[in-house]
Write a protein that binds this DNA or RNA. Structure first.
Lengths: 338, 338
DNA sequence: GTGAAAGCGCTAACAT
DNA sequence: ATGTTAGCGCTTTCAC
């Protein structure tokens, strides 16, 4: 029963060549005859040999593995991104350590150390704390951030959607549809992305000579799920009697939470109040009413981040490498703002 | 700039002891003085030493890493399970390779090989093909399946919810609320879990002397998202003029898709048609109407699987180990079946 | 085109 | 309580 993985040494013995030659054949490094290749490959196949990656990593200081830090995989937007990233690296023969940080800085640091110890070739991190804990890295490996601008620009590269423009476009859409009193609905601990969306919101108001009102800046308890938190928050606003005719929610789940609160209070969308979300999750096109939103190009975000990291890993400076990539967003107009 | 990870050897030199002693201190293996401990730890801290896991794995044939195969992380039920599993192993100082198989048998095999080569200490797999490809494993490591009964019982241990009872209870709930013509809504490529749910459905019908009708067994195209597929499928059933008064959907998203189709056709839930889902995803308690469903105890599922695997890894046979664990489900009655 | 041998960083058996 | 040393499986330099 006890299986034993066969080693290069044994392959060498069985095929009557040296370990060096076997290694060359496996890695296709040249300097072996066609005959040897056939012989060695036959034995490898026969015994189902697979190379011991621990040994290889130890020797080469490379693991063909990358680390991926994500705040919460139990969130459709993140999981979709993770899926894409995993797919891209799988194609390139890389494995991915997916690390769920739960927005916990301690866990983030712990993972950075652990990934470093595991000899990952690079790290991608999505959101989380502003400070990228690169100081816990003992090796010189590249780090690419998605959707978070690192405090120390020297620490990492990053790619993000144009959140400022997203906020601006979303607000403009509501204004163009006749809204004047627009709620900005976000969580109480703003991420850098949310700050930029807020700035976009302000810019759109200003451009249309609408005065900003603090009571319309509605915060959601960060400990609740977006949907539930938004539902509670908007319900409270209604009960307070604050007048508004539009809602810009900083993600689609928050928009749905708001929708639920309005429904419960017998307020009609979009007739009385218009809503726009952010992210364009799958359900947004199919719900009743369908939800207007800002579409982030997840695939492109993932693609850009992955290939940037791969370039950095391979120290490929043939093409120019930027420190920062900002990807365009687009407005998706649906029933909720018509 | 080029960082260099410090090794045990250098720690030894710096603290004036041998590498063996340093290793003992690090792993707390005894046979060193308090004085040495302090000295060594001081140096370790000063230089931010972390142990090279590749080397350690090579030496010990253990990696403190486990592999997790999941069909599709972009699905709330799976991502929730993954989150739990990751959390539990993190607490135990294990890392988790999360591998997204996309229901692709080739990818599954590829991951099995790769995990084996990476010296993972064990594997958890969720659903996927019936055949667990243990033959691609060159080392003797434990495999625990969640929600999938492996064909070869010898291949792996498994834990699952009581899907038969789930199907039975869901159908019974609809019957008790007065339904007679109950649609069974599932995807066209049934998983072993869905087969069992279907058997439960049949049993409940039989017990209540309701004849099974094939036209009420509605299949969803597996390539579509549950929500969209269900919406299309139920819309088609309505257009065909098939009479029904209840729907048992094999997951909550399918229930919501059905709900949307009914809404579009101006059919009221639960007044005209009652619906029950499966999984109890977060939105089900908050939607309008809230959704009756079968609750699977995800936390317990994760806990059971993880601790089973950990037991197997540690070859801990102090407590009895079963090959199979079946966890109870429970009915959650909400508005959609009232 | 092939082989011998060193060494990556670590643990553990054995010696003291 | 501490040190010496072999060796895990692999790559790579150097010699032929």
């Amino acid at each position: 029963m006890a299986k034993k993985n066969i080693s290069i040494k044994e392959i060498a013995k069985l095929s009557g060549v040296s370990v060096a030659t076997v290694s060359r054949v496996i890695n296709n490094n040249g300097r072996f005859s066609e005959e040897t290749r056939k012989k060695v490959n036959a034995i490898i196949k026969e015994y189902g040999y697979t190379t011991n990656i621990a040994a290889k990593s130890l020797r080469t200081s490379q693991s063909k593995t990358i680390g991926l830090l994500v705040p919460n995989i139990d969130n459709n937007w993140f999981s979709h991104l993770v899926l894409e990233i995993e797919r891209i690296f799988f194609e390139q023969n890389y494995s991915v350590f997916i690390c769920n940080t739960s927005q916990d800085e301690k866990k983030e640091i712990s993972y950075f150390k652990s990934l470093d110890a595991k000899i990952v070739d690079g790290i991608i991190c999505i959101m989380g704390s502003e400070e990228v804990p690169t100081k816990y890295l003992n090796r010189d490996i590249p780090v690419v951030c998605i959707d978070r601008e690192p405090k120390e620009i020297s620490d990492a590269y990053y790619v993000e959607s144009d959140h400022y423009d997203g906020g601006y476009q979303a607000t403009s859409e509501l204004i163009n549809q006749g809204c004047k009193d627009i709620v900005f609905l976000s969580r109480n601990k703003p991420t850098s992305a949310n700050k930029q969306r807020f700035n976009g919101y302000l810019a759109a108001l200003k451009e249309n000579h609408i005065k900003y009102r603090d009571e319309l800046n509605v915060h959601i308890d960060v400990n609740l799920h977006s949907y539930e938190g938004a539902k509670n928050a908007i319900d409270k606003v209604i009960k307070k009697g604050i007048k508004f005719d539009g809602i810009f929610a900083t993600n689609d789940w928050r928009a749905y939470g708001a929708l639920a609160a309005l429904k419960n209070n017998h307020i009609q969308v979009p007739q009385q109040i218009k809503i726009i979300g952010f992210d364009d999750i799958f359900i947004s096109s199919m719900s009743i009413p369908s939800l207007s939103t800002i579409h982030q190009d997840t695939e492109k975000l993932a693609y850009t981040a992955c290939h940037l990291l791969l370039q950095l890993i391979k120290k490929d400076d043939s093409s120019e490498i930027q420190k920062k990539y900002v990807l365009p967003i687009k407005v998706v107009r649906r029933e909720s703002t018509q």
